[in-house]
């Protein structure tokens, strides 16, 4: 089972190393053909403006949308959260409109407002996640069918999931945190199962047909 990391720029190697550390084979994705045979994809932190341009330039939008629609798990961290949102506050066009939320870019301010803290993310267990926020976005509006995974003490939403798409404002890959990657790997394994072997039951699209979690 292979999980891709969109490698247009940003914190790519950190996700690749985290995947390796949990025994998953990572693939750096820079061109559409790199997506072949993947069971999941991570959209890393970086600059969403830059990623948006590079996604368009290298024709990655449609194949990544298709992978997501087929039910493969997609994890977006920081800039990755921005690019999977259906709506971006301020009216920018969405990049991969997968997640029914409105996201606000640089929601805490500039670099001087970047911070780290401990956060409880119930779906990952009782031990808090050490969360590093760098020029981070937040989720301003949560659509129906979107599960909130974590909030800051002031109730602002910083992690969500809608079926196979997970988006978080912070950077587990900078903090040696592997539980989010393990969750994605579990989802990817479930996705990969019916896709492996020559015969696939018609219409079997795990996750995307599942109930909103």
């Amino acid at each position: 089972m292979k999980i891709g990391v969109l490698a247009l720029h940003g914190a790519v190697i950190e996700h690749i190393q985290t995947l390796r550390s949990i025994g998953v084979e990572p693939v750096a994705v820079r061109l559409p053909e790199d997506l072949e045979g993947l069971s999941g994809l991570i959209l890393p932190g970086g600059e969403s403006t830059t990623m948006r341009k590079l996604v368009a330039r290298w024709n990655l939008r449609e194949p990544i949308m298709a992978l997501a629609r087929s039910g493969a798990p997609i994890l977006g961290t920081c800039a990755g959260m921005i690019v999977v949102a259906k709506e971006i506050a301020g009216g920018e066009e969405p990049v991969f409109p997968l997640l029914d939320v409105t996201v606000e870019r640089n929601a805490f301010g500039r670099q001087l407002d970047s911070f780290e803290t401990d956060l409880v993310v119930p779906v990952l267990g009782d031990r808090p996640v050490h969360a590093i926020f760098i020029r981070a976005p937040i989720i301003e509006r949560v659509g129906p069918g979107v599960e909130v995974l974590a909030r800051l003490p002031d109730q602002r939403v910083v992690a969500v999931r809608q079926r196979n798409v997970i988006a978080i404002s912070f950077h587990p890959e900078l903090a040696g945190e592997t539980r989010i990657h393990r969750l994605v790997a579990t989802m990817a394994a479930e996705y990969a199962e019916p896709h492996e072997g020559a015969v696939v039951a018609t219409g079997t699209v795990p996750w995307s047909l599942g109930e909103a979690m």
């Binding site: 247009l8 720029h9 940003g10 932190g45 800039a79 970047s114 590093i132 760098i134």
Partner: peptide, 14 residues
Amino acid sequence: WATKKGLAQMLKGG
């Protein structure tokens, strides 16, 4: 230190 160094990590490959 993590946020200072981290922003540069987000710029890699660019």
